[in-house]
Structures are given as structure tokens and as C-alpha cells.
């Protein structure tokens, strides 16, 4: 059972590092930059989770904002509607204390993740029978359906929006901890999956569905699994988004958001985890960094020009199918240093 201890140790170390970084960053850096960092982390999570579906399993889905919305609203509904009802009998759910806030957020995360995953299952089961463009259109449609259902649900504010307790996260300066904690989880999840023989099933489905089927891969199961996992992680990101922003409206989850996430995956290189991660961060930060006085008028022009240039010069994305891996990088350095292999 030594490996369990090892994993727990790794978990503890990661938490400690994140908490420390969180403290240092929140104490020393301007609030607007912290919230930009939060957004970068969230979009990187969304991109990496969509990469599981689009890049690794090869199912072109462009309705990811829908699952993001499910997570945001379910998480918000817990904090605003369910928690207050339960608070009387369970005093531990009081907000305002460190433990209470973290616990509430954790419950919101679990609920949001599970609900988004279930929505993914519901959407994925019928639509993953379709391929290519058809699948893209159906997922796009489902994304919009989810948004419009929320728009017409009065309990969560309808078009007026919904305001989960933002202090839950912001009181103790904990948003970075949760957001980047989630990012680490998503990245490790994808990487470990790809490293195992199991992960090859997902790639095989992307490469050739008929051949995968003939080699004993249950393609439907693989596709639905990827879809559910990707949606669930998007839901988790949604929960954090809802609790980091001052409010959410259905407009935050429209088609544009879906398309931006898809752009990140494609630009990063479909199938490359590190590519999605990097593209998610850069594409979120870039429009904001271009806000300085000199060029702010042209920022969207510059942004879209960059995208076009990228698509023309490097259609396979920044990394293609490859990953940045520390060991390989070190090995390459070693090879350059000494001539022996």
C-alpha cells in the first residue's frame, strides 16, 4: 500500500504549494491581475477538458460552454438556494470561516461536476452516433438549448442573472488555490490516462473508428466516456467561475464562449494537453494584455489577425500532437551537451 501513501503525499505537497503560491500572489499582486490569472486557469481547464473530447478522442464537439453553464448554475444554486436551507441543521455549513467556505465550495464543486457529467451523458448517448460536422452541429445546438433553458428558469434569475456568494471564494483569497488545483487535476488526469494502455483506446477511436472496433475497442463506450469526463470537468470550471465572478448571466455561456474554447484546443494542437493548456492561458490573457492605451483600439483586430496568421502558418496547432515533456527536454539537452546518446 506504499503507493497510496505516495499519492497522498503528492496530493498534500501540491495543496501546500498551491496554498503558498496563492498567499504570495494575492498579497503582492494587483486584484485585476489576480482575476485575470483566475480566468486564465479556468479557460486552460476548459481547453484541456475539451481536448479530451476533441483532440484525444477526435469527436468534434463545439458546445462546451453548455456544460460550463450547467456547472456554474448548479454550483450557484447550491450556495444560494440549498445551502441556506441546510445551514440551520448543519452549522458547519456557515460561511465566513475558512473551513465553512472551503467545505461549501467543495460541495458545490462535487454537485456541479456530477450534474455536468450527467448532462454530458444525456447529450452524448444519442449524439455520439453522429460523426464529424453532424456531431459538431448537434453539440452546438445542445449548448444553446442548455443556455436557453437557463434563460427561462426564474429560480436562477433567468435573463437577469444569478449572484452566488462571491465572498465564499474571495474572503480568504482562495480563488487561485481552487482554480489552479482543478487545473492540476485535469492535466494529471488527461496525462495519466494517455500514458496508460487504456488511453490508447481513445486515440485509436480518433485515428480510425472502424479499425478500433475491429480490434476489440467498444467505440461507443469510449466516446461517451470521454464526453462525460470532458463535460464534468467543464462543469467543475463552471462552479469556480460562478463563485469567482460577481455574478453570472446566461450570456456568459453563449456560442462565442464555446467557439473560443474550441479555438484554444485547435490552436494548441488537437490532442496535445500542453498545447491546450498554453493556448487556453495565452488566448485569455492576450486580449486583456492588449488593453494598454497605445493599441487598445485595435486589440480585437490584432487578436483575430494573430489567429488567422496562426491558422495559415501552422494549421496543426502550436504543438501538433506532441507534448512538452520535461524528461525528453532534459534528454535532448543531454544529447547536445555530450555526443554519447
Amino acid at each position: 500500500m506504499r503507493w497510496i501513501l505516495g499519492r497522498i503525499g503528492l496530493f498534500a505537497v501540491t495543496c501546500a504549494v498551491l496554498l503558498a503560491v496563492n498567499r504570495v500572489v494575492t498579497d503582492n499582486i494587483r486584484v485585476d491581475i489576480v482575476s485575470l490569472l483566475v480566468l486564465c486557469g479556468l479557460y486552460a481547464t476548459l481547453a484541456v477538458s475539451l481536448n479530451l473530447i476533441n483532440g484525444i478522442t477526435g469527436q468534434f464537439s463545439i458546445g462546451h460552454a453548455g456544460f460550463y453553464a450547467v456547472g456554474a448554475y448548479v454550483g450557484g444554486a447550491w450556495t444560494m438556494l440549498m445551502r441556506p436551507a441546510l445551514e440551520k441543521s448543519l452549522p458547519i455549513l456557515h460561511t465566513g470561516t475558512q473551513i465553512g467556505d472551503h467545505l461549501n465550495l467543495l460541495i458545490a464543486l462535487v454537485l456541479g461536476t456530477v450534474c455536468a457529467g450527467l448532462t454530458g451523458l444525456l447529450v452524448g448517448l444519442p449524439s455520439l452516433r453522429l460523426r464529424g460536422d453532424y456531431l459538431a452541429i448537434v453539440t452546438l445546438g445542445f449548448g444553446e438549448v442548455i443556455r436557453i433553458v437557463i434563460l427561462n428558469t426564474d429560480a436562477v434569475g433567468g435573463p437577469r442573472g444569478f449572484t452566488p456568494i462571491t465572498e465564499l471564494v474571495n474572503n480568504h483569497g482562495i480563488p487561485l488555490f481552487w482554480v489552479y488545483g482543478l487545473l492540476v487535476v485535469v492535466v494529471l488526469f488527461s496525462r495519466n490516462l494517455l500514458k496508460s494502455a487504456q488511453g490508447l483506446k481513445f486515440l485509436a477511436v480518433r485515428e480510425d473508428e472502424i479499425a478500433a472496433d475491429a480490434m476489440g475497442v467498444n467505440t461507443t463506450k469510449v466516446k461517451v466516456t470521454a464526453f462525460v469526463i470532458g463535460s464534468a470537468f467543464a462543469g467543475a470550471a463552471g462552479v469556480l467561475y460562478a463563485h469567482c465572478q460577481t455574478g453570472i448571466t446566461p450570456d456568459s455561456f453563449d456560442m462565442n464562449t464555446s467557439i473560443i474554447i474550441t479555438t484554444m484546443v485547435v490552436l494548441g494542437g488537437t490532442g496535445s494537453i500542453s498545447g491546450s493548456l498554453l493556448a487556453g492561458m495565452v488566448l485569455t490573457a492576450l486580449p486583456e494584455l492588449l488593453r494598454n492605451d497605445f493599441i487598445k483600439e485595435y486589440r480585437m483586430v490584432i487578436f483575430s489577425t494573430l489567429l488567422v496568421v496562426f491558422m495559415l502558418t501552422r494549421p496543426q496547432g502550436i504543438f501538433g500532437h506532441r507534448e512538452i515533456a520535461l524528461p525528453r527536454f532534459l534528454r535532448r539537452l543531454g544529447k547536445k551537451g555530450e555526443s554519447t546518446p
Binding site: S196, A197, Q198, L200, K201, L203, A204, R206, E207, D208, I210, A211, A212, A214, M215, G216, V217, H321
Partner: peptide
């Protein structure tokens, strides 16, 4: 119909993975 982006070894592993119960 090979899995073109995968290496030769990975192609074989996909098939060998068939009875993988993990």
C-alpha cells in the same frame, strides 16, 4: 486501416489491450 498517428508499437498495444480489465 492502421492508426496512422500512433507508432507501430502503439498500434499493436491497442489490440493487445483488448482483454485488459483494469
Amino acid at each position: 486501416r492502421l492508426f496512422r498517428e500512433l507508432t507501430a508499437l502503439e498500434n499493436v498495444k491497442v489490440a493487445a489491450n483488448m482483454r485488459n480489465e483494469t
